[in-house]
């Protein structure tokens, strides 16, 4: 699939977390509609780290390290609902499998990766071994793959497995520093990451060997998401969202929210789900 063959859905937003709130900003083509950025949700007593979007029910899911919970809310408004509130210590990354209707998350306190249905039911631990600082997690439900980062300073890595937890293996371990952010773009089949140690954004096709440096000498990336030709990352030092053109490797836009504090997770809220099905969803 090539991004220029399948048109990207218009009316798409980026959702991003800034401690006690989740904001959204519309993206049109490859530019940020900065004057239309708005707060979607105030959760002033929480510290929201990871966010993910369900394009089917148009809900945002997030992890909160202050209350040790995972919650969700409709992006059309509506009260947040906590879906997981026990046995969480420091839930960070979260991913939504919109086809199989599952959520996956990392917990850097319990050092594990778990899965549950979207309402929090049928919770199951996928991995407990060989995790030191698990952080970002993304899914590619069409192909049934899970990807996550671990910023363990002694051995940082990007790993993958099938969505049921089988076939776990290390995808990247060389020339990594602090891989804080990870994104999978279903349109280009590219897995891209944001590394606060090497201060780079890099991409690879997970089915092939080789990787490509998109941009280097960036400040302190945390979250990353993809939409069209751009990657969008949050930066702890610049306290803003930065757009980088993946093809030419250049910064193309920046949005700095009026509240000045660290930005955490960022995700793309597609107005329509990306094309593709998987066998479990059909069956």
């Amino acid at each position: 699939t090539r991004p220029d063959v399948i048109p990207l859905p218009p009316g798409t937003h980026l959702l991003y977390a800034q401690s006690g709130k989740i904001d959204h900003i519309p993206v049109e083509g490859s530019s940020l509609k900065k004057n239309k950025a708005k707060t979607l949700l105030h959760v002033p007593d929480k510290v929201v780290i990871g966010i993910a979007y369900d394009c089917v029910d148009k809900m945002v899911y997030w992890t909160d390290i202050a209350g040790h919970t995972i919650s969700r809310a409709s992006i059309q408004g509506g009260e947040p609902t906590t879906i997981i509130e026990i046995d969480l210590k420091s839930p960070e990354g979260i991913a939504v499998d919109h086809l199989g209707r599952n959520i996956f998350w990392t917990d850097s306190g319990l050092d594990r990766i778990e899965v549950a249905k979207m309402d929090g039911d049928q919770r199951r631990v996928l991995f407990t071994d060989d995790l030191v600082n698990p952080r970002a997690i993304v899914v590619d439900p069409v192909n049934g793959n899970l990807y996550w980062t671990d910023w363990n300073r002694d051995a940082p890595k990007i790993e993958t497995s099938y969505m049921d937890g089988t076939n776990r293996r290390i995808l990247v371990k060389d020339d990594l520093g602090l891989p804080n952010g990870l994104t999978y773009d279903p349109y280009s089949a590219l897995l891209c990451w944001a590394d606060a140690g090497t201060q780079r954004l890099e991409c690879m096709n997970p089915n092939r060997t080789g990787r490509r440096r998109v941009i280097d000498s960036i400040r302190y990336p945390f979250g990353i998401t993809s939409y069209g030709r751009n990657l969008y990352y949050t930066d702890w030092r610049r306290e803003s969202i930065i757009a980088v053109d993946r093809n030419i490797g250049r910064e193309s836009d920046e949005h700095q929210p009026s509240k000045r504090s660290r930005l955490y997770g960022i995700t793309t809220a597609y107005s329509r789900c990306p094309p593709g099905q998987n066998h479990c969803a059909v069956n």
């Binding site: 006690g20 105030h42 002033p44 510290v47 000045r260 660290r262």
Partner: peptide, 21 residues
């Protein structure tokens, strides 16, 4: 609800009554 949107550095919460991460 009234929520402060631009709390001083290191503070957060509805009335900037909490400390940031």
């Amino acid at each position: 609800d009234v929520v402060c949107t631009n709390c001083p550095t290191g503070t957060t919460g509805k009335r900037c009554e909490l400390c940031d991460d």
